[in-house]
Design a protein around this nucleic acid. Structure first.
Lengths: 130, 130
DNA sequence: CTCTATAACGATAATAATTATCGTTGTTGA
DNA sequence: TCAACAACGATAATTATTATCGTTATAGAG
């Protein structure tokens, strides 16, 4: 494990790729999109940097969809919708934020809650129509 | 894909195993526990029956923890706590149920929400102490 | 009770996402 | 300019899960 971090153009491109889209891409998707710009990019490099960015808190995991882990460049707590049909991962905005309950859980169970995930599942508009 | 379902003692044992514990076991854990009773049980049989039971709605997936999918025999909507340290999956009861928002999402986005998952992450009591 | 159709099984091979290895390349600071 | 070492590409290894296939168990008909 390196003690010092060096700058890397590939890592910049990977985090930019994850931040620029709302699609919550997988490692494979990031790899596919960046191959145009970096023809000899390695999939291992994408996985390695995703792990680094996650350790640094630059990205978070939304969860696994169809066997692939999906990532989000927006790290603030917000819910997602996952289409069981096509695998789309979509941000949802609710009229009011769902109550936290973190303090209640810490008090009642003696845990230290650090974050949470709220995911709704079902069929997206496209999959309902087709 | 079979059209008729036959009774199976192994399948009975698998669903009983998942229902009898609050640990939200993985396929591997179910396999380990049932080998005492069925010495030549195959791991493939566990995976096959978990897939069947999930199709029938007898069990649900809590999500992936440390690369393994974890299952719950209680299919009603309730939140879970996952320890990032030891991987424990624990039911939590909240003073009031978190608001659903399903109707609001359906109305605003045109989706058909069928279910949701609410998971809190952090450190459990044991991992805080040790 | 016996027979037949076929669901379920065990053993094992195959798949697919992810992680590790290792020799080479790129970055940084002296 | 150079040395130290982080990051890389290529690829092998790992790991959870799924598929295959010949055998066994279940259930309904006769």
């Amino acid at each position: 494990m390196p003690t010092l971090r060096k700058h890397s153009r590939k890592r910049d491109a990977i985090i930019a790729c994850i931040r620029e889209t709302k699609a919550h891409p997988s490692a494979e998707t990031v790899y596919s999109r960046l191959r145009a710009e970096f023809p000899k990019l390695s999939l291992g490099t994408v996985y390695r940097n995703i792990a680094l960015l996650r350790e640094e808190g630059e990205i978070v995991s939304v969860g696994f969809v169809g066997g692939e882990e999906r990532f989000d460049g927006v790290t603030s707590d917000h819910p997602h919708f996952v289409c069981d049909c096509c695998g789309a991962v979509i941000d949802v905005e609710l009229s009011g934020p769902p109550r936290g309950f973190e303090d209640e859980i810490n008090r009642n169970y003696g845990f230290e809650v650090s974050h949470r995930k709220l995911i709704y599942f079902g069929k997206c508009t496209d999959c309902i129509e087709h």
